[in-house]
Design a binder for these strands. Structure first.
Lengths: 162, 162
DNA sequence: CTTTAACCTGAACCAAAGTTGAGGTCAATA
DNA sequence: TATTGACCTCAACTTTGGTTCAGGTTAAAG
């Protein structure tokens, strides 16, 4: 066991915004932005500079991962808000809030797969017709049967779909 | 065969912007927007009103489908620009430009699946550590080995990753 | 002690994909 | 004919996720 060396970031127990930026790969401006949005917090030194707890590194990591999953910052913030405020989050806490993203990913993969398969059908027939591939209705539901408002892709066809 | 009835939109061979909006499910303002962006075109009546060819309905449908696939409008426009200008696009034409989206979907589903699987790993260990799940690096590549700039998620760990 | 790098705030700006509103025209209906 | 609904343009505004810049302060290194 050597003594901590405060000259290197990973031995300090607080991080400057520059440290956090370097270690997380996130721009300082983005960290400021996250802080304005309430996703991370800092204390201020007497000279009004930010100091982040080490834990913040994990929070930022979680934010980036969540963004890759496709979750908007507001939702990420809402998830982070469910972490306990009175103690450092545990592995179990992170597991819990990650589970939601996993489910979300599953759903989105499902959706894209169905979209791809429908697209394959349509590539096959080349018609892009709603009656055949239902590609244009979110959630694969036809809003209304027959012609009229909000019916897509019946270009050139009469109301009977002939 | 009955005679066409010009009172119903699907019997007219030109569509007003309102017709197109109703039949495509796209807001009039969005159609104006698409036209400004060059994704669709119209002729103008003597009273300066837009008249769209029936074919435009199919273009708009293609735009919406492409957006669901996740393609930005600029790319959709570029694809539409490859359609022949001198004739009505055929099924083969649509098949060709749809193929690119299919490939794109495949790639994105692949990517999301890998992300989900990594996320599963991380839910298992609860650590969100880069060294274990490589979740935070786009394209699953570690930018640099060891500690220092751009290394994520080593919160609480020394440079040796212990 | 000075210089330079890092930090601070606030405002402005960017892209995408539109929407909303103001002010005015056009066309079909009662 | 008058009115209503659909249409026109242009400008400004919205949201998301930031970046860039100006002007000023702090802190660490020489």
């Amino acid at each position: 066991m050597e003594a901590p060396n405060p000259a290197v970031p990973w031995d300090r127990d607080e991080l400057t915004v520059g440290d956090l930026a370097a270690r997380s790969g996130v721009a300082v401006s983005a960290l400021h932005f996250y802080e304005r949005k309430g996703l991370i917090t800092s204390r201020r030194t007497s000279g009004n500079q930010r100091r982040y707890r080490r834990e913040t590194l994990r929070r930022v990591a979680f934010i980036r991962v969540s963004q890759r999953v496709g979750i908007p910052l507001a939702d990420i913030g809402a998830a982070l808000d469910t972490l306990p405020g009175d103690r450092t989050p545990t592995a179990k806490d992170w597991r819990r809030i990650s589970q939601a993203w996993h489910d979300d990913l599953d759903a989105r993969i499902e959706q894209l797969s169905r979209l791809r398969d429908h697209l394959t059908d349509c590539i096959g027939c080349g018609c892009l017709s709603l009656r055949r591939c239902a590609l244009t209705n979110p959630h694969d539901a036809l809003a209304e049967a027959g012609p009229g408002p909000r019916t897509l892709l019946v270009d050139g066809l009469g109301p009977d779909g002939a």
